[in-house]
Amino acid sequence: MLHDELSHFAQAIVHGHMPSPRIRQAYADYSAETALGVYRNNYRGNLHDALAGAYPVIKQLVGDDFFRFLARQYIEQHPSRSANLHHFGLELAGFIATFEPAKELVYLPDVAALEWACHVAYFADDGDVLDLNALAQVPPERYPDLVLHTHPSCHVVRSHYPIAAIWHAHQPGASEDFHIDLDGGPGYALVSRKDDIVQVSELTEAEAVWLQGIQAGARLGDATVTTLEHYPDFDLQATLLKLVAQNTLANFNLEKTP
């Protein structure tokens, strides 16, 4: 039966089992084992390349050889589940967090989480562009009732480490002369996409908390009051300018005051 035949073949590729005896053994210029080796290599190679494509900074941080080693272990534990290779690598941050050989690179899991957010942002749907004219027509007394919607690519990644700075230091063309203070306190990386460019910037803790409220659907007034309670220095106007510049806000509506 076709099903059994292909299942056998898949086990031979993924798990290294013996192939079905119905696979022809003799070829003019090579052995069946050689051919199976090509398929096994393709399987791992394609998944390795997909990971390397989604995680270029991790690859730079650990080097090509270590990355290949890490990828091989990851593929064993998290085999592909999708025909679309862009889905592969979702669990890498969690995997690295438990990956003993990388445990000294304490910031690595969070950098991986940031890279996955960038990968997802790259493929995220387009959002509406914030209509600044319409926003300007909202009377100031209604500002507290504004509900702001974020762009589908917008995502905040929290870390104990300055992951946005690490990410920027490993982009093409970045200066090789950089200093990153790992003990500088927690970092919040804002990811979004404008046209076809994924952008990463740093948020303050207050900005991140405020944006989290907005993303949860809070009205502008409520989110701002809550944020100011904990962060009296929170600057709403500066935050809004920053988010608009990074194409993070997509649209808005007005909710009635409850």
Binding site: F9, A10, I13, Y43, A50, R81, S82, A83
Partner: peptide
């Protein structure tokens, strides 16, 4: 794909 295994090839 076969039996839950996906081989991107």
């Amino acid at each position: 794909a076969a039996d839950g295994m996906v081989i991107n090839d």
